[in-house]
């Protein structure tokens, strides 16, 4: 298990280095996506299913936004260069994933029955039963996100803080004074 995590972390570092060093913008974005995917797999092996799902969904959205934002005009679709082999690989992967998905869907509980019925000793049932006694908060959601699972909220706070730091750093006014403004003015003239 530990070796697996080490391998995943090394792969993530390699992807980050590729994303930093590559010349092609599309390759850099795809490397960023690889980092997110590997991080999601790491969360999956660590047992944090919700975070893994959130990670992969956010990563997909982020990739879409990044591709639209950075390559919105220069985007040359890689479909032009794709051969029949790539198409074959894609179709095979889709079929394989569908087979796995059918297997997974068959293990889901029936519609309307909760997971807690099948596993009576899950923590969620304890939260629902003893939330008021243990925390004193009638709002069970607040009790979960601020008491039982407060680490999640700490992570959200960290994300917000990083977001505001990044916004202030990227969008500050002095960042838009480019050193080559003179050259561009002469070009325009």
């Amino acid at each position: 298990m530990d070796y697996l995590l080490v391998i995943l972390l090394v792969l993530m570092i390699i992807s980050a280095l590729i994303a930093l060093e590559t010349e092609n913008l599309l390759s850099a974005i795809i490397s960023l996506g690889a980092i997110g995917l590997l991080l999601s797999i790491t969360f999956l092996f660590l047992g944090a299913l919700e975070i893994a799902i959130t990670q992969i969904v956010v990563e997909v959205l982020l990739l879409l936004i990044l591709i639209r934002a950075t390559l919105h005009r220069d985007f040359r679709s890689p479909v032009d260069h794709r051969e029949r082999f790539g198409m074959l690989v894609g179709v095979t992967l889709i079929i394989l994933l569908s087979v796995f998905a059918v297997r997974v869907f068959s293990t889901f509980p029936d519609f309307g029955s909760s997971v807690m019925d099948r596993f009576p000793d899950t923590p969620a049932l304890t939260y629902l039963r003893e939330g008021l006694q243990r925390t004193g908060a009638p709002n069970i959601i607040c009790a979960v996100i601020l008491d039982f699972r407060a680490y999640d909220t700490l992570g959200e706070i960290t994300i917000l803080f990083c977001a505001i730091v990044g916004s202030l750093a990227i969008l500050r006014r002095s960042a838009h004074k480019r050193p080559k403004d003179k050259d561009r003015d002469t070009d325009a003239a």
Partner: peptide, 28 residues
């Protein structure tokens, strides 16, 4: 004034979120 630290955590989250969103809006 019940449920312990939850009130304090809620206040800190609200301060954080409100100012952060406002700053982001102002910048953008």
């Amino acid at each position: 004034l019940s449920s312990g630290t939850m009130l304090l955590l809620n206040i800190s989250v609200a301060v954080m979120v409100s100012t952060t969103l406002f700053v982001v809006f102002v910048i953008l």
